[in-house]
Amino acid sequence: MSGALLEVRDLYMAFGGVCAVDGITFDLHPGELLALIGPNGAGKSTTFNMVNGQLRASGGSVRLAEQELVGMKPRAIWRLGVGRTFQIAATFASFTVVENVQMAVMSHQQQIFSLWRPAANRYRDEALMLLKQVGMDAQADRACSELAYGDIKRVELAMALANNPRLLLMDEPTAGMAPRERNELMALTKRLVVERGMAVLFTEHSMDVVFAHADRIIVLARGKLIAEGEADEIRSHPKVKEVYFGNGLTFEHPPEPAVAARIPA
């Protein structure tokens, strides 16, 4: 497909003879939120780590705006404009909120090896702007270690935005959050994607989030891509139901009598 920002072709990964990702192919366009779902151990994390360079693919190609990423280091891929957030939010615990974002901006501005002038006032305004975009500017000077988990996720998002990424990789962005926080975070992400013309690839276990916020969904099982499409197609896909959704009892509102029947008196 033309106009794709990210083109993944026949991506393949084997660990010691065991095939973790088996020839998957997909595209991602600017402005799009693409969800990558599947059972635990389906190869989602492996795929993620190959796209951002943490793992070197055994075969296939990953191209960002025509440029081949396979074989590049994570740092180099980051400099090309690929940001990432982690399943377990990782921020620098001994920093304040704004310092976390300043660190990302300083790295983007190649000032890591600057030894003398204090860091505290470098790019503080830029960092505050980014924090404002994720609604964290009011807490800028708090220690990151004191934040609620949902807020740490927002800080992480602000850090990931520091280098004006074209592509954002989000590994289970809403894990450990309450339903409303989840929706707020994903709505925020969607807004940023539209404003900045980015694309987002994310993995997620909360089907409520996926169906509400993903523009498109791809499903992995045992390293293979078994389905691709919009929410309705995926929802009714028999194979996906079998290996991943089950009966949907735990994420959709079942009709009342079914609940009553399931709970013994």
Partner: peptide, 22 residues
């Protein structure tokens, strides 16, 4: 019990809890 696992597993967990309760 339902955190971070696929919906199909969450469903199995629910069945398991109901079986224990029984």
């Amino acid at each position: 019990p339902s955190e971070g696992v696929a919906p199909v597993i969450v469903e199995q967990m629910a069945h398991m809890i109901l079986a224990l309760k029984a």
